[in-house]
Amino acid sequence: MIQTENLCKRYGRHLAVRDLNLFVRRGTVFGLVGENGAGKTTTLSVLATLTTPTSGRAYVNGFEVMGNPAGVRRSIGYMPDSFGVYDDISCQEYLQFYAECYRVPRAVAEARCQEYLDWVGLADQRDTYVNHLSRGMQQRLEIARCLMHDPPVLILDEPTSGLDPRSRIEVRQVLKRLRELGKTLIISSHILHELSEVADEIGMMRRGELIAVASVEVLRSHTSAYRRLHLAGDADFARWSAVLREDPRVMDVHPAAGGVEVLYAGTVLQQADLLARLVRAGIAVTQFVEQPTDIEALFLRLTEEGLA
């Protein structure tokens, strides 16, 4: 449904996207994660026909972005990372305007307008001016706008950026519901944890390159299998490491404040064995705390090991 082949985009001397090879299957949700300047927005801009690639090819719904940009535009609903709205038009007029841009018949547009405003929880804001809505409401309205011409592909660039926690949850719920519609989605975000809630597959970009792709299912199974422990005590790192690595469930040990941090692949009961082993080795353990698993570190670790 979405494919890129050695896609490159250069802005002057800066190579924003480098040899990107991406494949997103029909009806799946693909999350693109990476820090600022990683090339996520440029990639999505190329897919949305807003930016011309320097080299390589990109296909959306079977249309090549340079060869048939009109076909691509009819196939996508695009939501940019920072967007604005028009003043002095109501939510209904806003949605109908975009429906008219896609030549959606008026009766169909009116029905969809009702349906999608209800769907994103803005049915009661139908006649409110768009510029009077909160940012979170505008984000949800934008998602409804993307759906007005019933495109098979949605390209959403940072759909939850700049929102308060409550609005983030509301938008995330809408994104989860988009899966039910059977659309193919490509979503970018800074936050892997957030993407893992809605995506089927996640790709990580760094300095214009796609450095890793992993299935969220695999990631989840490993997240539940691995535990991150913070241990503090009177030993030095070499001693901590020597004793801990005797346990085959210890995957990784590295220094942390006052002790070490351990990636542990055992159950809660097996942690007791680990603690007993440390005590038997004469280490005075003053702290033994399980911490929430850092999904990003785990993602990188798994993709480096080739497990995903």
């Binding site: 949305a48 026909t49 807003l50 009109a70 535009r73 009819r74 996508i76 695009y78 939501m79 940019p80 920072s82 967007f83 604005g84 709205v85 028009y86 975009y98 841009c101 896609y102 030549r103 706008r145």
Partner: peptide, 13 residues
């Protein structure tokens, strides 16, 4: 400046 141009350019207009 209002950041509505990008969306307009992704329509078939």
């Amino acid at each position: 400046e209002r950041r509505t141009l990008a969306v307009l350019l992704t329509t078939p207009l």
